[in-house]
Simulated assay, not measured.
Amino acid sequence: MNFLTPTYIIGLTQYPALLEKYAEKFRSIDFNIFDYYNDDWAHAIKSKIEWIIASQKTHLIRQPDKDIYVLTHGIMTSGKWQDDLESKLKNKKPNIKIIKYTYPYYSAFQILFPFLHRKTIKNYERFVVNLTAQYPNATLNFISHSFGTYLTVNTLSSSDIERNASIGKIILCGSVLKSDYDMASLIEKCQPKLIVNECGIKDLPLVLCNTAVWGLGNAGRNGFYGYSPLLKNRFFDGGHSYFFTKSGFMDEYWLPFIFDDVFIECDGRKKTEANDLVQSLFSLLPHIIIPGCCIILLVLLVLNLF
């Protein structure tokens, strides 16, 4: 008897008790089953369909297993550091797969308004999904700077790509994410080999970002809060682009990590009471300036109306 076997199986049930009882058996045969009364099933089906469509649209030959390094720059730059790092990586390993992701030049004004960069975020998500379709058995590694860290982390957090590709090493530098971003959930979901968050303690652009830009923060200055053995903060006595302008930085800290799994600790913070006080004052700025601006705008609006 000839028949076609399904490629993907997703089931719905109105019996949650039975779902809980037989969940392990369903997982053992890669059968995804959901509670009909929980909206999770709709999201799962939508995500799976989008991934299938994206994989069919790529029209690319699927490649064998390999490490892929995705380099993503920030705003107000053409990403020269991507070329510099690519050269260093290929000098050490000529056949290493490097992808330099670029997007249109962003001004500081554009980053203030979330609706102005929705398309860039969506394009990045589509890029990563297509990448997993082309290299289904590859390990994806990410090195991202500034707004590029926002694109990378949010894509890994919100999409279902971890079902289709393994995540290796992630290097974030000058990150515009908030320090209290839920990195624990990201780590639990994607199981990366290690996330390294490079911080510049003199990163003034991130002070402004944390103060004036809704939804963004200064994890690239203060580090991520909490603890995980898969997340390491490193603190350097430099600014927003210190990691590219400091001579020998990539050779000393990144190449050993990338090629030899060697992580070198560094903490250039001055742990004094005076410094703690300064940091506390900086942390108060968003709670003062943003509400203050809103009040001023409201007063001007009222005065204009009356």
Score class of each variant (00 low, 15 high):
104 P>K: 00
26 F>E: 05
189 K>E: 05
186 L>C: 09
293 C>Q: 11
27 R>N: 15
302 V>D: 04
255 L>C: 09
69 Y>D: 06
79 G>I: 08
210 N>H: 04
29 I>N: 14
197 N>W: 02
303 L>D: 09
286 P>F: 01
115 F>A: 06
115 F>C: 00
14 Q>E: 14
288 I>G: 04
11 G>P: 05
108 A>D: 10
265 E>W: 03
166 S>W: 08
238 G>A: 06
2 N>K: 13
52 I>E: 00
192 P>K: 05
58 T>P: 04
108 A>R: 11
260 D>A: 11
264 I>E: 08
36 Y>H: 07
275 N>R: 12
103 Y>P: 03
123 N>C: 10
20 E>R: 15
275 N>M: 12
16 P>T: 10
249 F>D: 08
268 G>P: 10
215 G>A: 02
249 F>A: 13
171 I>Q: 01
274 A>Q: 13
28 S>P: 05
106 Y>K: 13
65 D>R: 14
211 T>G: 00
51 W>Y: 07
283 S>Y: 02
75 I>N: 07
86 E>I: 01
23 A>Y: 14
259 F>I: 08
170 I>M: 04
176 V>R: 00
140 L>N: 09
98 I>H: 07
83 D>P: 03
36 Y>F: 14
62 R>T: 12
177 L>P: 07
5 T>E: 13
51 W>F: 06
176 V>A: 07
270 K>A: 07
274 A>C: 06
4 L>G: 04
57 K>A: 06
28 S>K: 12
61 I>E: 15
32 N>E: 13
93 K>F: 12
229 P>R: 06
243 F>E: 02
160 D>Y: 04
185 S>A: 15
262 V>E: 14
273 E>N: 04
76 M>I: 11
222 N>D: 15
263 F>D: 09
180 D>K: 14
288 I>K: 03
220 G>R: 03
128 V>C: 11
56 Q>A: 01
104 P>Y: 01
150 Y>M: 04
260 D>V: 01
293 C>M: 13
129 V>M: 13
204 L>Q: 10
192 P>I: 00
122 K>T: 14
291 P>S: 05
156 L>P: 12
